[in-house]
Simulated scan of single mutants.
Amino acid sequence: MARLTARARLAALQTALVLVAGAALSALTYLLMPCRAYFTHLDSTGSALTTMPQPMPAQTEELRALADRVQADTLSALPAQAGLALIVVTALAAVLSWLVAGRVLRPIRVISSTARRLSAENLTERVPVTTPADELSALAGTVNGMLDRIQRGVAERDRVLDSQRLFTANAAHELRTPLTTARTAIDVTLDGDPSRAELISMAGDVRGAVEHMQRVLDGLLLLARSQAGQGAREPVDLAAIAAATLAAATARTAAADVAVRPRLRPALVSGEPVLLERMIGNLVDNAIRYNHAGGHLAVDTDTAGGRAVLRISNTGRRIPPDEVRTLLEPFVHGQGTRVRTDGLGLGLSIVRAVALAHRGRITLTARGGGLDITIDLPRSRDRRPPHQDDPNGPIRPATA
């Protein structure tokens, strides 16, 4: 047996209510019919004088018999007439209920048809919100809000998928390049009777390619670890890490003719020391690598508004605003006049991942020449960092 639609069920319910109400009204009318006859004494002009209940005077026996016959005829005819009227009213109620139910359920049909037309490729259509504000308009608003969230989720999913595809392609390119170099060196050297010098040169090329691949893999592993945000947290002073990093980079800054301008004030955070050391190390490495002779590197640490702030700025070439937004992406080395160095393009990506893993924010600003990077992290409530007496502790070299 086919199941009734919502419209049919609603119409049937309304019709049943009318039928029950009509039947109850007819039954009450039948039961409440007067059981005693009443008559009216009339004067000679036909005017009503008074109304008196039974029993009636003896001289009105004929009138009483007539009243009884009228009452009996009325009671006998009432069920048939009431039944006929009830059938007519019920049929009319069924028609009107069907029409009313269709009108009431029309917004729901609109919502249903709109939902059927939607797909992953078409999420722009919305359900019209009816007036006045009622339960159906609230339902339409709820459906539209759900569609908005789905559309944002699909857009974010597509963005993440595009980013992952680009990341995979770039990672494959970074790994394929040294493999191609090593294979070419081997094929060229072994094509014939190579001398000892040629074999040594080939071994050097292969070793360089292997080291390059190892650096890429180390950077990818560190990036994955930073994005996972796992590890023991402890109080760490950004000023101590920055001081140690600058001390380790003294030879590089001197060779690059870059002046260092530190302004380090205590900035205590709660985090994983290894990741925070790599974050600051990558920032300093990036500021030195893309600087110019006679330039400077400024490193500031401080606290503001309950946050620990790290700011690193450097001189260098002028960076277009459109390029600044892409520098945080993996394997981005920069465009324009920027010369590609031995960097892998993972340095700032790791910096962003570490900052986000520590619930921080990172801001990149292009200056007249060079870059200004600001990172703020939640300030630690513990004022006793475990390595505060060793500001020149071990710093991992920034190679990504």
Rank of each mutant, 00 (worst) to 15 (best):
Q227S: 07
L220N: 01
G219V: 12
A244Y: 05
H212T: 07
Q214K: 15
A244N: 02
A244K: 03
Q230M: 14
Q214E: 10
D237P: 13
R215T: 14
A224N: 12
A243R: 11
L222T: 10
D218I: 00
A244G: 10
V236K: 02
L217A: 09
G219Y: 02
L222E: 11
L222P: 14
S226E: 02
D237Q: 10
G219K: 13
L220R: 09
M213I: 02
L217Q: 09
D218K: 11
L222G: 04
G231R: 15
D218H: 01
A224R: 09
A232R: 11
A239H: 10
A242N: 04
G231D: 03
L223A: 15
V236L: 08
A243V: 10
A240W: 14
V236R: 00
G231C: 09
T245K: 11
L217Y: 11
S226T: 01
D218Q: 08
T245S: 11
A239L: 12
S226V: 01
M213V: 03
E234H: 04
L217G: 06
L223Y: 13
G229P: 08
G219R: 09
A228H: 13
P235V: 09
L221F: 11
A228L: 10
A240G: 09
Q230V: 12
L223C: 05
G231S: 09
T245A: 15
A242I: 12
A228P: 03
D237Y: 08
G229C: 05
A242K: 09
A239R: 01
L238M: 05
A228D: 08
Q214F: 07
V216H: 05
A232G: 14
T245L: 12
A224M: 10
L220W: 00
V236H: 06
V216P: 01
D237E: 13
Q214S: 14
V236I: 03
G229W: 08
D218Y: 06
L221A: 12
M213W: 07
L222K: 10
V236F: 06
V216L: 06
M213N: 03
R233K: 10
T245E: 13
L220T: 04
L223Q: 14
L246F: 06
L221K: 06
L217S: 12
I241G: 03
A239D: 07
A239F: 12
G229E: 11
G219W: 06
V216E: 00
A232V: 11
A228I: 05
T245I: 08
T245P: 15
E234V: 05
A244L: 00
L220Y: 01
R215G: 07
M213P: 01
P235S: 02
A239E: 07
R225Y: 09
V216R: 00
E234W: 00
S226I: 07
Q227G: 05
R233S: 07
G229F: 11
A239Y: 12
R215W: 00
A228G: 14
A239M: 05
P235T: 08
H212L: 14
L222R: 14
Q230S: 12
A224V: 07
L221I: 02
L220Q: 01
L246C: 04
A240H: 09
L246N: 00
G231Q: 10
A243I: 10
A239P: 08
R225D: 07
Q230W: 13
